Amino acid sequence: MTLRFVWVFTATLILCIATNIKPNSHSITFNSAQAQTEPITANPEADRLLQIGVEQAKRRELQEAVDMFRRVLALSQYNRDRERQEIALNNLAVVYRTSGQPDRSVQFYQQAFDIFRNPDILVRMAEYQLQLQQRLKALESYQKAFAIYRQSNNSDRETETLLSIADLYVQLGDFSPGLQAYREALATYRRKQNCQNEDATLQRMGQVYERIGQNNLARQLYQQVARQQADRNRQCAMRVRRQSLPVSPIILGDDDISPPSPPPPSEQNPLPAPILEEIGKR
């Protein structure tokens, strides 16, 4: 079990005790894939280099950031510091995605998963594989992550990943397993009285039935959603909002690197295009 998952489970357990709710109940939503936490073990030199690399990446000094993260990776491998190995590989994947090389990002995520077996890594890798139009590989990554979440009793992440699997089956035109995955997710949401996600899943199923020409079934699902949303006596669980976790200065997030600035206007042609065209006619 990786550091990130342990931190998330601990935070969830504390929240459960504070609110007198059982772990994994329908009242808790926790997205461990977004958790970014400080490592437990101390390694000041590696953390200093990681922070420098993060700041370089934010300034779009991408090659310098890559060099810095590679230094940390080599250092952490030498010191057998597994926590910072994962952080360095994650940061490298983010930088390469930002630089328009999602294929390199997938390679680093695959390397990280082979070492740490963290299902969150598989989910992120699947997202990048979708950018590369590698839908079958993305489906395989989601399915592996789903199996690990189920084995570890991470119900929320399991169901989220199941929906991603269903959506991907539908995109591939394989509607039968897609609908089956939706039904399984729907059963979970109903058991947890998660009305919002239940209705959204029914809507998705209705859209699939429309695509395959079963309009009567689609209409029935849409009507069911409308009735449920209008039912004031409907029993829906109160959702406990997950508080944002502190972002570590040594971990690079997908949104930390701003897009490149637009190129400055050409100094050779400072005049507007219509004026240049008129000059050309003369």
Rank of each mutant, 00 (worst) to 15 (best):
G173M: 09
N118Y: 08
T188Y: 15
D67F: 07
E277G: 03
A237T: 11
S152A: 12
P264H: 08
D174Y: 10
T29G: 14
P264S: 08
C16P: 06
V123Q: 02
E278F: 11
N20V: 14
I121L: 15
Q34P: 00
Y169S: 03
P249N: 08
V94Y: 00
L130D: 05
L136R: 15
P39Y: 02
L179N: 08
A273Q: 12
P259K: 03
D256R: 04
Y149R: 06
A112M: 07
Y109K: 03
Q56C: 01
N194S: 11
F113W: 13
D103G: 05
L130A: 09
A218R: 00
P264Y: 08
Q207I: 04
E38G: 01
S261F: 10
A181W: 06
S152G: 05
M238H: 10
P102Y: 03
Y128H: 15
L15Y: 06
I115C: 05
Q180R: 12
A112D: 10
A200D: 05
L92C: 08
Q34A: 14
Q214F: 05
N20G: 12
Y109D: 00
N215W: 12
S176M: 12
V170S: 00
Q129W: 01
L15F: 07
V123N: 07
P44Y: 04
A218P: 01
Y96C: 02
D256Y: 02
L252F: 08
T19Y: 13
P274M: 04
A74C: 07
K192I: 08
D47P: 01
P262M: 06
T188S: 15
T12L: 13
D255R: 09
L49I: 14
L162A: 05
A18G: 09
S266L: 02
S155E: 14
L162G: 04
F146M: 11
Q203T: 11
S99P: 04
G253Y: 00
Q268F: 13
Q111R: 12
Q224F: 04
